[in-house]
Design a protein around this nucleic acid. Structure first.
Length: 459
DNA sequence: TGGGGTTAT
DNA sequence: ATAACCC
């Protein structure tokens, strides 16, 4: 379909080193936002790689869990995050593939994001399988084109939430209808070029677009007209369903006696602020009304690369060192393909504890010595050994190695990723790196200054 | 309960 | 460095 919105921002390879967070869009009153959500993403990727799995119940396994499954499996009662035992009991004939290595999912995920960037450069990733796209400007273009063509007929693509009647005299309705057509084009091109199906939601902000995208589930799309906003929020059976209200906040709200979205809407703002703090209180109460002015923040290349593994037990230093080296080998391969260099490294562990174990992670991080950073392009073996050394020092900061220990997870993370050369005379990087700390108060300048202070201070 | 991610404090 | 959030 001839849908391209002009050159966009170019390929990911070209903008990989581009700055983040320089966002063109200010807060506009009448935005049009699309949320896209692939159907059972990992299972879809596996089925593309092995089409024989198409018509069979398929589960993607990580350790003891079915993290996702195709719709054949769902028909037979398999749910996301079901234990392998329960799943095999329900459905012994299910095919299981191991999905602990995320490489192919990550690659497909970025292809989707890049494809969406052809429609608008304002694409924000949420996990591997969801994206927000701000299509306000594209919609405006089509709106003026529509006017030139003599205000001909516009129609909706996909569902309208609540089957609400469209008012063709309402410009916002027209914008959202155009948005629904663009969403359909996005889904069409995702299918034609990548073979992926998914849902989309169209609305005037991120919160609403995300909430509405799930209303018709596999491979369908829905547009929300403003008059149905309260119905959409009212359809949520619990405040926990509001994106942005997570596990902890839900617990605190329940202690206040709140459980429905309506409860939160009508609750005293002052008491809410006293218990949650002003910023969280005001934020989530706005969410409860469907108010969300947060911009679609282009994700660009990732801020961090990490690799982790969980296990039943790891209790000796040599075991830890082996696992760390494995993780690091994988990460070094990824960072060299990325092309940027990490300036910070972090080790995260999870200690065994019989009670709730997914809350107790500890981490230590440190700057990577500049001599090592420079060796990054030059073959991974040159940096592997010194980095293992650094990580073992970080490990000993958390664990007294002469006392018994029991770990259930190790994770290594590269962060503070910088595009490398950038320090040639005449470049921005050169001047930011030179000279006098206490000049202006730009964030870039402070970061560089801080980084310099930390050099020679490693571990 | 996995193997990732982000931002705020 | 941790705590919260997201998938």
């Amino acid at each position: 379909p001839g849908i391209h919105a002009g050159p966009g921002r170019g390929s990911r390879a070209q903008c990989k080193h581009g700055p983040r967070g320089l966002r063109p869009t200010g807060s506009k009153a009448h935005r049009v936002i699309v949320h896209t959500d692939l159907d059972c993403f990992y299972a879809q990727v596996e089925m593309i790689h092995n089409p024989e799995l198409r018509d069979k119940p398929l589960g993607v396994q990580q350790k003891n869990l079915v993290v996702t499954c195709n719709y054949e499996a769902r028909k037979l009662g398999i749910k996301k995050l079901m234990s392998i035992r329960d799943a095999k009991e329900k459905c012994p004939q299910m095919v299981l593939v191991n999905g602990e290595d995320l490489t192919q999912y990550r690659e497909m995920s970025y292809k989707v994001t890049e494809l969406l960037e052809e429609f608008s450069p304002l694409v924000e990733r949420l996990g591997f399988d969801e994206n927000f796209v701000d299509i306000t400007e594209l919609v405006e273009k089509r709106l003026v084109q529509l006017h030139r063509d003599g205000c001909s007929k516009v129609s909706v693509s996909g569902h309208v939430y609540n089957n609400q009647p469209v008012n063709l005299n309402d410009v916002m309705h027209i914008r959202l209808l155009i948005g629904s057509q663009i969403a359909a084009e996005m889904r069409e091109v995702m299918y034609n070029r990548l073979g992926l199906t998914g849902c989309a939601g169209v609305a005037s902000n991120k919160l609403l677009s995300k909430l509405v995208s799930g209303t018709f589930k596999p491979n369908q799309q829905t547009v929300l007209l403003p008059e149905s906003c309260q119905d959409l929020l009212g359809s949520l059976d619990h405040i926990r369903k509001v994106p942005g209200i997570g596990y902890k906040t839900t617990k605190r709200l329940e202690l206040l006696g709140l459980s429905s979205v309506r409860d939160l809407q009508t609750f005293s703002p002052v008491i809410l602020e006293e218990t949650l703090g002003v910023s969280v209180a005001q934020h989530i109460q706005k969410l409860s009304y469907g108010d969300d002015d947060s911009p679609v923040a282009p994700s660009g290349p990732p801020q961090s690369l990490s690799d982790e593994d969980s296990f039943k037990k790891c209790s000796s230093e040599v075991e830890v060192e082996k696992k760390i080296e494995e993780l690091l080998v994988n990460l070094l391969d990824r960072i060299s393909k990325d092309g940027r260099k990490p300036h910070t490294i972090r080790l995260t562990i999870r200690k065994f504890s019989s009670a709730y174990k997914w809350f107790n992670r500890e981490s230590r991080q440190c700057p990577i010595p500049s001599q090592i950073i420079q060796k990054f392009g030059t073959g991974n073996d040159n940096v592997l050994t010194p980095l293992v050394g650094i990580l073992m020092k970080l490990f000993r900061k958390m664990i007294k190695v002469d006392e018994p220990f029991h770990l259930t997870l190790l994770s290594v993370c590269f962060l503070n990723l910088k595009s490398l050369p950038s320090l040639t005379k005449g470049s921005i990087g050169f001047y930011l790196t030179q000279s006098s700390p206490p000049s202006s108060s730009g964030k870039k300048l402070r970061e560089v200054t801080k980084d310099h202070k930390m050099e020679g201070d490693q571990v």
